[in-house]
Amino acid sequence: MKNVYLLVAISIISLSSFAQGANGGLSNLQGTQSNTLGQSMEALNSRGSWLPTVNRYSVDGTPLAFEEGNNKLVLVAKDGTKFNIPNGNYNAQTDQFVSVLSKDSVYVMNSLTIDYALLNNKKMKRFSGENGRARYYEVLASNSKDDMFILRNRVAKIKPGGINKMTQERTSNDRYYLVEDLYIKNGDVLEELKLKKKLISQLFKDKQVEVKKFIKDNDLNIKDETDFLKIFNYYATL
C-alpha cells in the first residue's frame, strides 16, 4: 500500500461547510462533547486539508502509528471538552493527530488547543523532550508523588530506496518505518529508558527492599516491559 500524506493549510472553500461562525472557537461547544468532525474542527480551530497524492517520488508504507480503520480517537481540549474524531490516527512523522478522510487525504488537528488525546484508550500527552522540543508520548504509567512518568515514543522515519549508481535512477521506493522507544520523565528531565537491573537501585532506591521482594514473589523480570510496568506501578503505591 502506497500512501503519502501531504499536510497543508485547507482552503476557505473546503472549510466553508464546517466553519460557519467559527470565530467563537472552543466557546461554541463549552462543556459539551462533539460527535461530528465538523464541530470538532470548528471548536479546535483546526487547520488541515485533503489533496490527491502528488509528489516527485513515492514512499511505501505510512507515517501513521496505528493501522488504518475504525480507530477511536478522542481529543480533550484544555477546557476539558471532549471531541470524537472519526477514523483518527497519529502521524508519527509530523507529531499530529489526524482524521483519515480518504485513501490519499487526511485532516490535521490543531495541537495548540489539545490537552491530551485518547487513541484506542491509549493516553497521549505532549511533553518537552530532547532539545526542548515538545512531542506526544503515550503515557504507560505515572507516579504523581514523584512527578515521574513512563512513556512510549513513536517516530516514523524514512528508509531511502535503492539507487542505480550508474544511472542514478531509483530502483526501489523509499519506505516508512516506525521506531518505538521507552522514555522516562523524572521531574523536568526526560530521557530514553533502557530496561536494566540497575534500575532497581536507580529508580526505586528508597524502597529497594520492598521492590526486590515484590519482584521475587511475583517472578518478574525488570528487563521485560510488561513486568517493569507492574513493578513501577507497585512502587507508586508505596
Results as ranks from 00 to 15, higher is better:
K198E: 13
A43I: 03
Q208R: 15
L64I: 14
A43E: 09
S142V: 01
D206S: 15
S40I: 03
S34Q: 04
A65G: 14
K196T: 15
D60P: 01
L15V: 00
D219T: 04
G31S: 08
V8M: 10
R56L: 11
Y57I: 01
G48S: 12
T237L: 13
S111Q: 12
F83E: 11
A77L: 05
L220V: 09
P86Q: 10
Y116K: 14
I215D: 07
R126W: 02
Y183L: 10
N3D: 01
Y177T: 04
A19M: 15
I222H: 05
A22N: 07
P86E: 04
Y90S: 00
G25H: 07
A141V: 03
R126Y: 03
E130C: 00
S34V: 12
G21Y: 07
R56Q: 08
N153D: 15
G161C: 06
F127I: 04
F149Q: 07
V108F: 01
D219W: 02
A9D: 10
L51T: 15
R56T: 10
K216T: 13
A117Q: 07
S201Y: 05
S40D: 06
A9T: 10
K82R: 15
A65L: 12
D115I: 01
N143P: 01
I158S: 06
Q208G: 07
E169C: 01
D227W: 00
T171Q: 14
K230H: 04
F97C: 05
R175P: 00
F18R: 08
E67C: 00
Y183Q: 09
V74L: 05
I13N: 10
F127L: 07
